[in-house]
Design a protein around this nucleic acid. Sequence first.
RNA 1: GCCCGGGUGGUGGAAUCGGUAUACACAAGGGACUUAAAAUCCCUUGGGGGCAACCCCAUGCGGGUUCGAAUCCCGCCCCGGGCACCA
Length: 806
Amino acid sequence: MADIHNETDTYDPAAVEAKWQRRWIERGTNTVSLERAERPFVNLMMYPYPSAEGLHVGNVFAFIGSDIHGRYRRLRGYDVFEPIGFDAFGIHSENYALQVNTHPAELIPRNIARFREQLRRIGLMVNWEHELSTTDPAYYKWTQWIFLQLYEAGLAVKKAAPVNWCPQCMTVLANEQVINGFCERHPDTTVSQRVLEQWFFTITQFAQRLLDNLDTLDWSDSTRTAQINWIGRSEGAELVFETPVGEPIRVFTTRPDTVFGATYVLLAPEHPLVDRLTAAEQQAEVNAYRRRATRMDVVARRIGSAEKTGVFIGAYASNPATGQMVPIWIADYVLMEYGTGAIMAVPAHDERDYEFATQFDLPIVRVIEPENEETLPYTGWDGSLVNSGRFDAMSCRDAVGAITKWLEEKRLGKEEVQYRLHDWCISRQRYWGPPIPIIYCDDCGEVPVPEADLPVILPPLDDFRPDASGVSPLARNEEWYRVPCPRCGKTARRETDVSDTFLDSAWYYLRYPSTDFDDRPFDAELTRKWLPVDSYIGGNEHAVLHLMYARFITMALHDLGHLPFEEPFTRFRAHGTIVKDGAKMSKSRGNVVVPDAYIARWGADTFRMYLMFLGPYQEGGDFRDTGISGIRRFLERVWGIVSETDGTGGAEPAVRKLHQTIRKVTVDVEGLRYNTAIAAMMEYVNLLRSDEGGQVTRDLTEPLVLLLSPFAPHFAEECWERLGHHESVFDACWPDFDEQLAREAEIEIVVQVNGKVRSRLTVRPGISEEEAIRLAKADESVRKFVNGKEIRKEIWVPDRLVNLVV
RNA sequence: GCCCGGGUGGUGGAAUCGGUAUACACAAGGGACUUAAAAUCCCUUGGGGGCAACCCCAUGCGGGUUCGAAUCCCGCCCCGGGCACCA
């Protein structure tokens, strides 16, 4: 044991951490050979957006939890590739650049440098050789390439669409970026509606596959549920209401069983049939209503008035079931984006229709007789039909199919499935993003930029401020804007929209292994070897958008023959959020905590462990400063134990506890239950230090250092070296446990009388029921409660309890 | 309004195939060491009663199922996050 340092020096985290960060670089500890690796494992974490403020505690919480998992896998013998990059395009960077009056191209590298430093400082096992930034032309060349692939496949289409316009950003927002009618980034600014030509990816074509594939993925349930709800499949029927102008109104309904009660029809104000159907005398009123509706944004245009509004357009349509002519109204709560933009209103059995009908005095016809409920509207399924001709007395469920079939025979309806999912609008009338690689020629029309001409470089404009015109700042740069048509050579114009940052992040995981290649986005062989991603850990705030878009892009590239798989992330786990004072950390709330000062004071290892000890990783927790000293004390105790280590073997209680601890930590780390894994290690250390612990030996400390290493990597390296090892602790193996050694020699079983604990017996494990009950009955404090009463029942849970019912 | 989490000591949290509630840690109090303080170490710490052995009560609230409920069921309340008339 001559090589063990029996040093009594104290633990100095700053020195230890600096030493090992230097060593990791010198030795290439965190570099994995992508070509030679035998057991490839990609440990992905959600790359950050490099803001000027640097990483906050919420960010590092996410990275640390993922890093622990990566390090654990490495100790399990995998060749772990843990890459990181920067999501540096987008409205955030651009707005900030405008605010401080500095070009984003200048700001971003500065921010990235700071982020890189912070990420290094917390000791992530990152392969820096494969770092990427979405703003790098070598990266966005391939973002543009992906656009072209989808374009050629007909999955990128241009449509005139009503979009959300933020007058503050002076640009378009995605529906998903509008919060209660206000801009996500300007909570005081109302979003209004504008019609612009936009590029869309037709993700809706993949809706069913995106839904079906969820069954095959090992994802957190919460994330899977969020995706299911977002896709929003609903089954029903499309029914046809004939109109006098020849073209019928098609409505989607999930309740075709109630069609006999449809007493009017509602169209979205933008519905194309409105112009043709509106009676002359109603025209003025209809126009006024439509103008008012478009002043508001698409999603939340009714914020502020809970009351229903609408206008009769002076025309009638025929109810396909009754043949009766029913009035046609327009109402802004009917959305053009969903279904057919038209609904049949059944006021007796729908809340909103009921409210609307009551307000405008429209007829209400009951068609369901519920079993016991009398008040209208009745929206349930338990009842039978009335006022529905030949379908009277049929149950609602049966009537759905029967009525749909009947109308189908009359060519007035068919079964239909609708999805809530919208097509993905990727156009942004902004500057700071990858230009969409399309050229408009007066003769040839829309021409894709030839692949050889990629990337379309974002020109370094001085004035990149959006203006009220709604045209991208890029259009003001003539030199860039005018370009020869790739087909005919005549002067043509570039597309001036840039693409959504969600497109950058929809494929970044594909790029990591292939960052060295300039001539292809992702190398076929490396991709086959390393991808799809083995483990992805990230926040549930990206449960729908980012993860859905990444799945869609992967699926599309698969269909186009570029990828051998169609799902990008085999396993996904959502972590919780770190909150401060009961609320999510955000700049506007002023409750952002920056990790730097804590790391400087306590060290990265203590800080890492402390964050993981706050609460369950998958639920997050409340950040407080109190308690961090407990972790530091724990590490110092381990430090002391390592110093005292001598000899082999170990006292029986210590060995037993060791094997129990290995078992517990292994299971907990697998399940991302880091808080309880840490608690288990603390218990073990407490035992080693107690009278029962005996002499600390190499056999008792080495496994502890290994268990600790994913959590406190620098600290573990130092201890490992002090224990006489010359290789990195991360080149060692995760310890195994022995069930036999973990077994207790004696266990305590509880004796209850009528379910109340009355005594505890110390017995050997595996004791028989008869013997346990005999011992229980003989116990004095038990006898006090049984006391001559008749024992009616004896309950035996092996190795746990006896319950006597008297 | 809908969906998803969650509510357990002074605090963060453990324990959920129903079976010893309060692991681990912080804070607090007491003690040892010290001229003193810090650090460290040891002890106490859910509430109530009792000299004590022990007993009673307690997991947001109210019911229920069960030999036994923090855990399952029904009905509420509160907190956090997400979505917003989805036909």
